[in-house]
Design a protein around this nucleic acid. Structure first.
Lengths: 201, 201
DNA sequence: CAACAATGTTTACGTTGTCAACATTACAAT
DNA sequence: ATTGTAATGTTGACAACGTAAACATTGTTG
């Protein structure tokens, strides 16, 4: 007998989509293989035809989230094609904004056990993962070469400068999104003040 | 018949101690109630006499980790009783160092679902949680009043300055401890360069 | 059309969090 | 000292979970 709903067709992308939604709504620790399967209207072991295990599915979801994030950063840079200083500031602001608006993505992209879940097949995630690093790095290299700092006290070590820039925006994003930094005003405006001050670059 | 090992006596603190160890060794997602119980040589439901559920135990462990962390920061400050600028720099360096040396603590103290687990009994954790914030805040208030910055471009908004200082060291700690910032040299030396540059304060 | 790969289902097992019922011990009141 | 009760431990059960094995259905390719 023909059961037209037997083959779900592109269940794989459906699992990623519903998985991301589930993570957003219920959080990382309430995420389960069986719930995603149910959300897709499929038996609880069907996902195993597309992902070898739970980690593999989460990695795939992470990859999708990373693409979104990286696109955001790239857009920010493209907005100022000829002004490197603005590129860096705008990129930093976008970095914070993205995670403030999508708190679950922050946990997904920067959980410290991520590397433990990688194998030969899904390690492509690392390339995307370091993309923000690469972007910061390249932009700052150009900034430094343009702007031979004669300022005696400024950071001259390239790696230190990259770590400082990236660390600053990352830390701000975390503290805001975990609500550890308590403040009654507008967080993003505060972020703007920091990034557009002369102290920062 | 008298079985002298029936009552474990201070099982509670033993659970916290072994729990912290387990978290350190096997990570947050491999932590289980039953493993901790086994580590204490006790049946798998014994912990429920001391903690109403898994979250409660983890909260207690978190509290202990926070105390350690806060003590470290306080020590750093005490090392420079009369030099506020050094206090801030030293505190920042200690912040990074602590989490680089204890990566699991970072996940424990700053997991974004922490607040979801709180109830009326265990919410005391929040007071300790904001202690670093308070420390940064107070120190920076004193710094600002001493150091009326006539520097036109510097950050004058108190909240912005606190967020920037805290965010910077927190971000650096995260990026190093998740190994997202790839660098072949000494991370802590790099951190030192950043914090002791004139750009930072 | 026949064989096979891809994809989905059912069943089963071990691990986990947690509840309920019970056992043992400590301790306070008589 | 005895007794009642609270504190603390154990055993057994259950549902949710990850995942492997065996099987069913469908699409595809010769």
């Amino acid at each position: 007998m023909v059961n037209e709903s037997y083959h779900h067709e592109n269940l794989k992308s459906e699992l990623i989509k519903n998985g991301l939604k589930l993570l957003d709504e219920e959080g990382y620790e309430n995420f389960s293989m069986r719930k995603v399967a149910k959300a897709c209207g499929v038996s609880h072991t069907a996902p195993y035809r597309h992902f070898r295990n739970k980690d593999d599915l989460i990695i795939a979801i992470t990859l999708k989230a990373e693409h979104k994030f990286n696109s955001s950063l790239q857009e920010a840079i493209n907005r100022y094609p000829n002004d490197i200083k603005s590129q860096i500031k705008e990129m930093g602001y976008t970095y914070v904004k993205f995670f403030v608006e999508n708190p679950e993505y922050l946990r997904l992209l920067f959980r410290s056990d991520l590397k433990k879940h990688l194998n030969n097949e899904n390690c492509e995630i690392l390339k995307d993962k370091v993309q923000p690093f690469g972007t910061f790095y390249n932009t700052i290299v150009r900034y430094q070469s343009e702007n031979q700092s004669n300022d005696a006290g400024s950071i001259t070590d390239l790696n230190a400068l990259v770590l400082a820039c990236w660390g600053l925006v990352h830390g701000i994003a975390v503290l805001i999104s975990t609500k550890d930094f308590v403040y009654e005003g507008d967080y993003l405006e505060l972020t703007r003040k920091i990034l557009w001050s002369e102290t920062f670059l």
